[in-house]
Every structure is written in structure tokens, then in C-alpha cells.
């Protein structure tokens, strides 16, 4: 796999102005190193205030590292000349679906990014239609965003990014404000974009049930990387996660506790089907 995004020893501090406390605590990110390959689906998990959202905003030059570098397809995010190339390559979807829709009609909002990039009108039309179909919102193209549900609005926001034909989409807690149904809609859309279109996905979330769907889980705690691996590797570290007061899925937790009591169970299970299968084996003897 081709290396795509590289975060190299990044420290980041919000500019608090005069009299800033120089102690280590004032840094939101403290020495992050991370490489992301093309086509990967990476979930970034952590508490509120762990630095995960701050990290998300480094991938497309919204934030610039205080020290260290971030490279996107070889371009340094500090380099102003590449600003639009970087934002074209890496799209960012934010948490609040209401606040990122610019226009009063769905299709015009989706077109907004392409219009900014100076894409010719005919091509914008095709791109917008394709993007709306990709998130399953084509039939709503003439609607006003006010009348849509949270999940639908968030899919419109995703379509607005897709229309810019990015290689990577970063989603900063896209489901935090949604109901369970909206959450399902958004996550299945994201999974489909990753599997069918090969778009690299970086999903910032605090829902472990969403993280298990990724190829790779990165856990951020107090501005540093705590764990980085496949969901199975990461969630097998039950004790470490507990110590940092992080959740694991209930299925994983149950399996872990029973295994601790000497039951013959696998190292780690991720979802209810896997857990039930494993339990059936020991209970049906």
C-alpha cells in the first residue's frame, strides 16, 4: 500500500495569547506520529479533550502544527502554495450537520465546493448528481436542508465533499449529534465509500461500535497516541483501555471477563454475532 498521509512528531498548542503557560499541559497534541495508507479506513478514538478533533483538523491545513510536520501526498500542510490542493485531496466533515450547509437547496450546497474550485458548469452538474447518488440523497436534490433529518443533512455534507473528488475524507465526530438511525445511515454511507470507491476514511468518534468497523483503530489520549492497530489488537488490550477509562464494546467486555474466569473463549471478539458464536461453543457442550 502507498503511503498517503504522514504526521511527523506533531505538537500543537492553541494560541492563548500573552502569558501562555509554557508547561507541557498547554499542548493539545504532544508528539504525534502517524502514517495512513491510501484506501485505509482508520478510526481515531479518544475522550473529549483528548486531542482527536485537533488532530483531525491537521489533515487538511485547518490547523498547522506548532512544531512537526504533516504531509499529504508529499505536500507539507504548512506550504501555502498547496493549500487548495491539500483541501481538494482531503475533505473534512464536521460534527454539527446544520452549521456546514451553505446553500438553501441541497444540490446547490453540494455544488459549492466545485464552484469554488472553478470546475466548468456541465461537469459540476455530473459531479453533483453522482455525489448525491453516492450518499443516497439524489431524490432530495431540490429540497431545502431545513426539512431534512440529522442523518440526511450529514449525508448532504458528505456529498458536498465527495463532489470535490477527494482521495480522503476526514469525519470529525459526524454521528455525535444524531439519533441511532441517523448514525447507521452515516456509518453505512462511509463504509460504502471506502469499500466501493476506495476513498481513504479517517473517522473521529467516541463510539466503540463504530470503531470496530474500521481496518485500523488509533487511540488518542491526552494528546498522544496510546494504541494503534487492528480493532482486534486494540480491543484485546482491555486492561490498558480500562486504566485510561475508555470503553470497549459490551460484547468484547463480556468475552474478556468470562475468559478471565477460565472459560475457553477467543482472545477478543468485536461484535454480538462473534460473541454469541463463541459462547454457543462453550455452552452447547
Amino acid at each position: 500500500m502507498e503511503e498517503f498521509i504522514e504526521v511527523r512528531n506533531v505538537y500543537f498548542r492553541y494560541d492563548i495569547g500573552e502569558g501562555t503557560d509554557a508547561s507541557d499541559n498547554s499542548y493539545a497534541l504532544r508528539g504525534i506520529n502517524l502514517k495512513i495508507n491510501k484506501g485505509e479506513f482508520v478510526a481515531v478514538v479518544g475522550h473529549n479533550g483528548s486531542g482527536k478533533s485537533t488532530l483531525a483538523k491537521h489533515f487538511n491545513s485547518i490547523f498547522i502544527p506548532t512544531t512537526g510536520d504533516v504531509f499529504v501526498s508529499g505536500m507539507n500542510t504548512k506550504d501555502d502554495d498547496h493549500l487548495f490542493d491539500i483541501r481538494k485531496t482531503v475533505g473534512l466533515v464536521l460534527q454539527n450537520p446544520d452549521n456546514q450547509i451553505v446553500a438553501g437547496i441541497v444540490e446547490e450546497d453540494v455544488a459549492f465546493g466545485c464552484e469554488n474550485l472553478g470546475v466548468p458548469p456541465d461537469e459540476i452538474r455530473t459531479r453533483v448528481d453522482n455525489a448525491l447518488k453516492a450518499v443516497d440523497m439524489y431524490e432530495y436534490r431540490k429540497h431545502s436542508p431545513d426539512k431534512l433529518s440529522g442523518g440526511q443533512k450529514q449525508r448532504v455534507a458528505i456529498a458536498g465533499i465527495i463532489a470535490m473528488e477527494p482521495e480522503c475524507i476526514v469525519l470529525d465526530e459526524p454521528t455525535a449529534m444524531l439519533d441511532p438511525q441517523g448514525r447507521d445511515e452515516v456509518i453505512s454511507t462511509v463504509l460504502r465509500l471506502n469499500k466501493e470507491r476506495g476513498i481513504t476514511i479517517i473517522l473521529i468518534t467516541h463510539y466503540m461500535e463504530e470503531a470496530v468497523l474500521a481496518d485500523r483503530v488509533v487511540i488518542v489520549d491526552s494528546g498522544t497516541l496510546l494504541l494503534d492497530g487492528t480493532p482486534r489488537e486494540v480491543f484485546a488490550q482491555n486492561e490498558l483501555l480500562k486504566r485510561h477509562r475508555l470503553d470497549v464494546p459490551q460484547a468484547t467486555e463480556l468475552n474478556h471477563r468470562l475468559r478471565g474466569c477460565g472459560f475457553d473463549l477467543p482472545d477478543c471478539v468485536l461484535d454480538e454475532e462473534e460473541c454469541a458464536e463463541a459462547l454457543k461453543k462453550i455452552l452447547k457442550k
Binding site: E209, P249, Q250, A251, E253, L254, R257, D271, E272, E273, C275, A276, L279, K280, L283, K284
Partner: peptide
């Protein structure tokens, strides 16, 4: 809850567990 669903799955496969389980 996910934990309740696990119990429901076990119940479906004929294992006599209670399905009114709410916590780990």
C-alpha cells in the same frame, strides 16, 4: 443494548438464557 442482543442470539439457538439482561 448489544448485551441483550447477544442473549437473544443465544436464546434463538436454543440455549436457555434469560433475555431480560441489560448489563454486562
Amino acid at each position: 443494548p448489544q448485551i441483550t442482543r447477544i442473549m437473544m442470539l443465544l436464546r434463538e439457538s436454543g440455549i436457555p438464557v434469560n433475555t431480560n439482561i441489560l448489563t454486562v
